[in-house]
Amino acid sequence: MSTLAVMRLELRRLMVQPLAWVLAALTLAWLAWRFVLLLGQFLGMQIRLAALPDGPGFTDIVAVPLLAQLAFLAFLVVPLLTMSALAGERRAGTLALMAGMGLPPSRIVLGKYLALLAWLLLWLLLALAMPLALARATSLDWGKLAAAALGLALLLAALAALGLACSAFAAHPAIAAAAALALALALWTVNLGARMAGLDGGAINWLAMSTHLQPLLRGLVSSADLAWFGLLVALALALAVRRVADEKERD
């Protein structure tokens, strides 16, 4: 019940803050522009594609690249959305107030996380609406699109948890945003050196976020990739809960 109350409060705050709307409007406008360009490219390739027996279709050339663009934008958008979630509340004194209401730290963190996730999934749905609008006019590969959408949803869930953890630890929202961006980029590129050296396996590749997202964007769903995202979310949220619980001990 209190998790839902925190979630409702956080959603309301997101809905009335200009930042969330400005970010949504700008990114969706950018995605719409990219969608039009990708669609034009797809239409221009029609004759060549018709000659290929197993050539790429609308999903490969338009829908999945559009979602890959959204993944790129998420690295910037999510830290900006999550930065104030706990760091801002701490500065305003409302985090202590919530603790003074007897709310367990786990419910505060979970409520905020679910609200952020709801907003981000709505953002994903609006981006997905673009290729889905042409579902009747083209032949969509529903399985591939569902796998890519699942990958994006997992990426957003992981970035939101990471951002929330950074917001729990940082004293200032701007520091939380910078830390979340740096951590997300580090997780994405941690295996860059290994890949350049031609190493495809190993722990360093397992650690990298790109290793687990790219198969999903190609339509391959494996439980190992789902577990990786699940572990990252659980770890980040556990750290955030621990830090919020420590608020009562602060100097």
């Binding site: 019940m1 409060l9 309301r12 705050r13 305003a92 004194g93 202590a96 107030l97």
Partner: peptide, 24 residues
């Protein structure tokens, strides 16, 4: 608390609703 902690983007009525819900 000493300086009433508020959410500046919420209205007065929304504050009371939020506090009420958080208290069940």
């Amino acid at each position: 608390p000493e300086r009433a902690p508020l959410w500046p983007e919420l209205t007065v009525a929304e504050h009371l609703d939020a506090h009420g819900r958080l208290r069940g």
